[in-house]
Nucleic acid binder design. Structure first.
Length: 473
RNA sequence: GGCGGGUUGGCGGAGAGGUUACGCAGCGGAUUGCAAAUCCGUGAAGACCGGUUCGAUUCCGGUACCCGCCUCCA
């Protein structure tokens, strides 16, 4: 199986060649844990979850290492911790920060679980790797790539000749177009912070440069190195991180570990829009994953909508898509439960067409089209197993539904008979009011009513409600 | 201002230099007491202007518009 991926580094679609097929390594930039994940945060999670599943399928589940970090050093978190302390909460600032991040991480896990995302193999937290960050910063100073100035440690951008290569920018162009105020102690306006001093109201750690905290970019370099080594296969994240975050990661890592070549393949997902517009608080179209779940949009629906758009295109979240997808997933659930042999489906491989589609630079849209074809061609076991593979409908869902329907089978049979006899008499009397009333009630209970000359069939639909059925007996 | 991406039928959204994408919706028909479901059939596209080519929606250039990044928002 040949996987092809668009590498941001070369701007080309390339054959994926892992450094070590027995341990394929991927690092993805995770969230800053200061609040609930918004819908945009879900996109890289879902995109790289699909890639993770594909890699596990191709190289074996035990031969892929997926790391996604939690950024738990951040001024927004500090602000919240400080607010709590001032409101009378007990504990040190560091403890209050920890409390806030723990809470946020638990939310994040719950929300991403709802989206069907597998847990990465490692979820390192920046605060657990301060030692490595300090060591890496010291090493960069020793090698002449960083310098101390005004209590800060800054990376010397001019010392790395390829700076800007990933994002296609030159240092000179960026300076020319910069709209940022430049700290006077910087040697070069583009130099960025590796370490900065902390005031008494900010969490901090001891370092050779005094009590302080790391800059944002260094954590990913340090954690990727610690967990994946000097060179690894894939680095992913949102397109907005390409510059400066990923550029800076590359610069730090390349300079600190000149014998490694950091990530071989860089993957960037495009951004999310909502009803055709950028999601923002000012436009009033900002919402979290939890908001959607609470509004009754199932996680699988969110996931499916995301997979409809290729990861390298902007994705537009619309309520209309969610409605359409909900119906489609409902159909799959009904079909899979009715026609698949669930015991053997578990042992069936996902449809090769779907794997092929994913292997071609994660063509998730084509994969979904192929799923439709599985249903069209009555490949029920593959339909079920492929939906499970993609995280869209877990096996357990099919099994749970089968169990639920088994409990209603007798009731359905009785109602079928009732409806048949009512109909027979109505055909004679030409008064269909009783038949139509029962039919409406059945439809209201989520049952599809199929009447033909051959007879009557009652098929529970995706929204079948056994309780409403009871009421009709 | 600098850099990057995009513009496909009513909607969503792909691939491929020439052959039906596909899904949803629509329309016609079969079927039905009426429906639903199903089946059969069917219309509809490639922002604009040039260029390359026997032939371009697909390659190249320009224009317009949209979007992102340049501000620790994925």
């Amino acid at each position: 199986m040949k996987i092809r991926l668009t590498n941001s580094k070369t701007r080309r679609k390339e054959d994926f060649q892992p450094i070590d097929p027995s341990n394929v390594r991927m690092y993805v930039c995770g969230p800053t844990v200061y609040d609930r994940a918004h819908l945009g945060n879900a996109r890289p999670v879902i995109v790289f979850d699909v890639l993770y599943r594909l890699l596990r399928h191709v190289y074996g589940p035990d031969h892929v290492t997926y790391v996604r970090n939690f950024t738990d050093v951040d001024d927004k978190i500090n602000a919240e911790a400080l607010r709590r302390q001032k409101a009378g909460a007990t504990g040190t600032l560091e403890e209050l920060v920890h409390e806030r991040t723990e809470e946020t991480i638990a939310w994040y896990h719950a929300d991403m679980n709802a989206l069907g995302a597998l847990r990465p193999d490692h979820e390192p937290r920046a605060t657990e790797y301060i030692t490595q960050m300090v060591a890496m910063t010291a090493d960069l100073i020793a090698k002449g790539h960083a310098y101390e100035a005004n209590g800060h440690v800054l990376f010397r951008v001019r010392s790395y000749k390829d700076y800007g290569k990933l994002s296609g920018r030159s240092v000179d162009d960026m300076i020319a177009g910069a709209r940022v105020e430049i700290a006077p102690y910087k040697e070069d306006p583009m130099d960025f912070v590796l370490w900065k001093p902390s005031s008494g109201e900010e969490p901090g750690w001891a370092s050779p440069w005094g009590r302080g905290r790391p800059g944002w970019h260094i954590e990913c370099s340090a954690m990727a190195h610690e967990l994946l080594g000097e060179s690894f296969d894939i680095h992913g994240g949102g397109l907005d991180l390409q510059f400066p975050h990923h550029e800076n990661e590359i610069a730090q890592s390349a300079c600190a570990h000149p014998h490694g070549d950091f990530a071989h393949y860089w993957l960037h997902n495009e951004m999310l829009q909502v009803e055709g517009k950028k999601m923002s608080k000012s436009l009033g179209n900002f919402f979290t994953v939890r908001d959607l779940l609470d509004r009754g949009v199932p996680g699988e629906v969110i996931r499916f909508v995301f997979l409809m758009t290729h990861y390298r295109s902007p994705m537009d979240w619309t309520a209309e898509k969610a409605v359409a997808v909900d119906a489609k997933l409902g159909d799959y659930l009904v079909l899979g439960e009715r026609f698949a042999d669930l015991s053997t489906a578990r042992l069936t491989a996902p449809a090769p067409e779907v794997i092929e589609a994913l292997a071609d630079d994660l063509n998730t849209h084509l994969a979904l089209v192929e799923i439709d074809r599985l249903a069209d061609n009555a490949r029920w076991n593959e339909l079920v197993t492929t939906l499970d593979f993609l995280g869209l409908v877990p096996f357990e869902r099919f099994e749970a539904r089968r169990a639920e329907l088994a409990g209603s089978a007798a009731n359905l049979a009785r109602l079928t008979e009732t409806l048949a006899s009512d109909r027979a008499s109505a055909m004679a009397s030409k008064d269909f009011s009783t038949v139509d009333a029962l039919k409406s009630a059945l439809i209201a209970a989520g049952v599809e009513v199929r009447m033909s000359k051959a007879g009557i069939e009652l098929v529970p639909g995706p929204d079948f409600d056994p309780a409403k059925l009871e009421a009709l007996l």
